[in-house]
Design a protein around this nucleic acid. Structure first.
Lengths: 327, 327
DNA sequence: GGTCTTGATCGGATTTTTTGATGGAGTTCT
DNA sequence: AGAACTCCATCAAAAAATCCGATCAAGACC
């Protein structure tokens, strides 16, 4: 005897738990469509390997011995692991991705991705998901570099630099121009003109702090600061350092409490209409998604289809909407 | 083809990871002391089962295919599970318990059991531990009923009702008579006599609220309340409902902050000397402990052996000791 | 060029596994 | 109590698997 249990077989473990589950050797044999002697043989082999009896056969129905009780859950674990191995193999055969790296724009509401991923987990438990949160330009870079296979990106209309991406609208984000209540812009009455905006510091979100204003979405001011972290920018604006456009879902609570104020922009100026930006699930045309990725996209978009009618009627559940739409 | 991977073998998986780890089929063969053809055979068998190639043999050294990369960790998991199965089997052969239900008196300091169990976990990772916290009489009952195989109990000297238990001293608990600062007893100057104690409500700990004072350890008062929960009793005393003896480790902070006051008992009265009660690791003589249980006992006692000298010198690291010993 | 190593393949030996039949023991039903 | 079942162990024979050693082509190394 070299070492204990050196030659246990998956088949033996399978037989073991089958006997336990079915209650008898014969029943297990029937369930597994094998001869009863094969079951006996298998159990005996296992018992020989581990050096102890697993069943007490003195009773009519075999009973688990202490060793059997102790080993049963471990056997189950092994079989479980083997099952997921098989499942992963079939997944691969069917063409389901094994990994799915996703990049999500920081503007995308948490709920959107969390809900989708929750459903995803149940559907494709074996797919390795990794999520990166990044800002606009960085999301595109990740997709193009191949760091991410799927992206939920901010997709402003009329931007033609996304031609290499297969896109599918899956929602929209409400960009709300806000400032701290003590900020000068917040003190003004009536619509705020472009000139007034220009006079005040705007805190922009930018993944590339070096580049100076090439394709800054929604840039108005001359004085601009760039921050690559949305949370930091949020804090800066809330502390009165400047004004900026924030995604509605992040500032709802603040507006409610009055710690941030919505700036009433002049609607006649077309530059101010970028407030509602579509979100898209996107991937490189050259790298088509697998079944899991496609399923996830459909899931994300489904949420959009359900919520869209509400958006059309201009009510989005919170007091925020009315405040915003009033401007 | 019935279903994919129905007949994967532990041996095949073993070969699979061996090849990956060793870097080549031949090396794996050498490492496993088998013929190289057996390795080829095994890998081919696995590949046949799952329907995809695992290695790319076009290179000199075989490289993992995408499928191989995806399946390797799952294979490892299976082998891991199988290994713990074997380990559990050997454990059982050597006589190591599979379960070890423990009962711990509420007076026992957390650190004592936590530290011991931390070490235990590394030593016997496969033993199912379950810990119950109970009060004195209940701990004994659990041991005698067989609910617990091992108990860390309060073991007052001269108590002869523990003859059926194998005991080993493993520490001691400091019983400190305390009351809230606004309590009348706390206002007195000088040693408190037995008569004075009697006049005030004592909050006793008792697992059996019905029985009236048969074997109450350290009972002085005539007015007694019984509580079966140490935490609740602690709150009651701290709120000034009465006085009572509390384990030092639970009231250190309160005494420090002044939210509880140590009562200076009259040391001449022998009834007041129960303040330091030994703790014992105990089990039924009729049910000897297995190796794991014995190891745990030795571990618990080891902590005692290390700390004892400090106790003798009357310094236990905190300001509490001096305050107590001063009385 | 020669030498080594690597992995696939094949035939034959060896071992393992399966099957069906049989028998003794326990259970169930009448 | 006895008939009819179901249970599990055992056995011999058949089937299937696994193993080994030898051999071969292809790449690496020198």
């Amino acid at each position: 005897m070299d070492h204990i249990g050196e030659g246990v077989t998956l088949d033996q473990l399978d037989i073991f738990v089958a006997v336990v589950d079915q209650g008898s050797f014969s029943a297990a044999a029937r369930a597994m469509k094998r001869a009863q002697s094969a079951i006996t043989y298998g159990v005996q082999g296992l018992e020989l390997q581990i050096g102890t009896e697993l069943f007490d056969r003195s009773t009519y129905r075999p009973t688990l011995t202490a060793a059997g009780v102790a080993l049963l859950p471990r056997a189950r674990r092994v079989l479980e692991a083997a099952a997921t191995f098989r499942k992963q193999a079939t997944n691969f055969l069917v063409g389901i991705e094994t990994r799915l790296p996703i990049v999500v724009d920081v503007y995308v509401p948490h709920a959107l991705i969390v809900d989708a991923l929750k459903a995803f987990r149940d559907m494709f438990p074996l797919v390795d998901i990794s999520v990166m949160r990044q800002t606009m330009e960085a999301t595109l870079r990740s997709l193009r570099e191949g760091t991410a296979a799927l992206g939920v990106i901010v997709d402003p209309p009329g931007l033609s630099t996304l031609d290499d991406l297969e896109r599918q609208v899956c929602g929209e984000v409400h960009g709300v121009p806000v400032a701290a209540p003590e900020h000068p812009l917040a003190q003004l009455n009536g619509p705020i003109t472009e000139e007034q905006l220009r006079d005040h510091m705007q805190v922009l979100l930018s993944s590339d702090p070096g580049a100076t204003g090439t394709n800054d979405l929604g840039a108005h001011s001359i004085n601009r600061w760039r921050v690559n972290d949305l949370e930091l920018r949020y804090r800066m604006i809330r502390e009165g350092l400047g004004w900026g456009s924030m995604p509605a879902h992040m500032v709802e609570a603040d507006i409610e409490k009055g710690t941030l104020v919505v700036l009433p922009l002049d609607q006649s100026d077309p530059a101010n209409l970028v407030r509602r930006v579509p979100l898209s699930a996107a991937h490189l045309k050259t790298k088509p998604l697998g079944p899991a990725g496609r399923w996830l996209v459909s899931q994300i978009s489904k949420a959009d289809r359900l919520e869209t009618p509400h958006l059309d009627r201009g009510e989005r559940g919170s007091a925020l909407s009315s405040k915003i739409d009033r401007e």
